[in-house]
Structures are given as structure tokens and as C-alpha cells.
Design a protein around this nucleic acid. Structure first.
Lengths: 139, 139
DNA sequence: GCAAATGGTTGACTTAGTCAACTATTTGAA
DNA sequence: TTCAAATAGTTGACTAAGTCAACCATTTGC
């Protein structure tokens, strides 16, 4: 277990760097990403990513100010509002993805196509294993 | 590439949580870990992990105040000092590892031994591929 | 019908990290 | 051999990311 530990510590360190150059934190990027999957409200975002509600509220406020999202009254619950990406928001997310891709490319550029394929497969398999686990926890 | 991207974003989010409960940031933990490998000076730490030198200086100052490390004059270079873990520092690192292990265990507890083995192998293989790459860059 | 739960906001704060300027020492080329 | 540039580390001032607690409005469920 100790070994795995060390691997993931290094891995996080390595991958974390990726978001340095962008205008958004990793958390902000994840929020944008969740919003791209369809209109949701703030607490649905909180169900998906671990984030303090006050912080989320401020991030969303900033996104709204920057016209990346629009909030609309939810018909059902007057406390909540449905949040959706604007066109500008979609463009921003796309740019963010492109940037992340480029940085990833930089990180991987000395690898062969085969090695990269291997890497993706490994990453996928990790996520599958962990996904499976968190699914079973919520049962 | 976009797929990989999403996987690693989620993965970082997932693994990052691990360090929340400890008294140290992930970066601090990595510094302690590097120090456990033998006496080194500050710039050698900077060779190993990406960190601002002013921040590193402050972290080390804090570690010294907390008696986790001791600095001793390097014989060769009067600007640098050799840094080593104290007994207390070693205990701290051990505790940190134990905590991380426990959190990892929690994260993995619904997985079978086989699945965990699989996960470790995947993680290892990712690190090997990336290590190989960063080694070749410095040639 | 009302207490507790939920969705969200705000103020005050902490932690992690960055940037630039600086001192002291060492290195390397003229 | 000397002196300009490089290196090791420190400090002050700052920003970014995130947390904590108190709060208001609305909804849920006994």
C-alpha cells in the first residue's frame, strides 16, 4: 500500500501542474465540465464534486458576472436556480479542454503512440475500478 | 486525448481529497518524503519537486521550528545547508504515511484484493511511463 | 401547522502559493 | 587574480483557493 501511496503522490504532483497556465483552477474547470452535461442547480454540482457551498456560490457568481453561465428560476423549487452554460461558457470550456490537451501533449510528447495508448488504458482502468467502488458505496 | 483528460481531472479530484485530514499539504508531505531519502539541501528538493523557492524556504523554516528537520552547515558551500529529518520528523512522516494509507484503504475498501492489485499495477505502469519520459527529456 | 431540512448567500478568515527584490557566497572567463 | 554572472537562500508584500459560521428563504415531513 505504501508503494501505491508514493505513486499517487507523485502522480498528483505531476498532473496538477497542468492547470497552472489556465485562467481557471482545477475546481472551476470541473464545475464548468459538470455544467456542460446539462442544466443543473448548485447542490447537484455539490453531489458530483466535493466543494464547500460558499465557495461554489462565489465561483458561480463570478461565472455569472463573466457571462459564462446563466441562472434561471427553477419552476419547482424557489430556493434553487437552474444553471446553464452560455455560448461564451461553452467556448471557454472548449478552450480549457484544448489547453489541457496541449499541456498533456507536452507532457507526453516523447512517448510513442503505443505508450500513450497504454497510459490511457491504465488511466481508464483506474477510473473504472474506482467508479465501480463509489457506485457500490451508494447502494 | 479529451477522454484521458476527463479521466485525469476526476482522478486528481478523487485522490486530492486524501490529504485534507492531515496536518500537512500534499507539497509538505512530498518535501518530507524527499528528505527521508537522505540529507539534501533546498535546491536539491527543488530539482525533485516543482516548488517556488520562497515557499520552500518558508515551509522548511516551519519544519525547523516544529523540530521536524535540522539544518547543518554544508562543508563545501557556505550558502547552502544540509537538511535532515529529526527523529520527530521521521515519526511525523510515518504517521503521515499511515494516515494516507488509511484513507486509501477507505477509498478502496469495497474492492477485492484482485482489483486493488490491478489498481496498483496500473498506477505503477503510469508512473513508469511518465518517469521514462521525464528522464529522456533531461538527456 | 410548524420544526427541521435544504438551497443558497455573505462576511471574516486561513492556507497555499507567487513575485520581486535582496544578501551572501561561489564559479568561470578575461 | 579579479570581477561579473550564477547560485543558494531569505524576506516582504501580495493573490488565489478554500473554509467556517451565521444567516435568509423556501420546502418537507411528522
Amino acid at each position: 500500500m505504501r508503494t501505491f501511496n508514493r505513486y499517487y503522490t507523485n502522480l498528483i504532483g505531476l498532473l496538477d501542474r497542468g492547470y497552472l497556465e489556465s485562467q481557471h483552477s482545477l475546481t472551476e474547470a470541473r464545475i464548468l465540465f459538470e455544467l456542460s452535461l446539462g442544466k443543473i442547480n448548485a447542490s447537484e454540482i455539490m453531489d458530483r464534486i466535493r466543494i464547500d457551498k460558499s465557495y461554489l456560490s462565489r465561483v458561480l457568481k463570478k461565472f455569472e458576472k463573466d457571462k459564462l453561465i446563466i441562472k434561471s428560476k427553477s419552476g419547482k423549487d424557489a430556493r434553487a436556480s437552474q444553471i446553464g452554460l452560455t455560448e461564451k461558457g461553452k467556448v471557454e470550456l472548449k478552450a480549457l479542454n484544448t489547453l489541457a490537451d496541449k499541456q498533456l501533449e507536452e507532457l507526453l510528447k516523447d512517448l510513442s503512440a503505443t505508450e500513450i495508448k497504454q497510459l490511457v488504458l491504465n488511466m481508464k482502468s483506474i477510473m473504472d475500478i474506482l467508479d465501480q467502488k463509489s457506485a457500490s458505496r451508494n447502494r
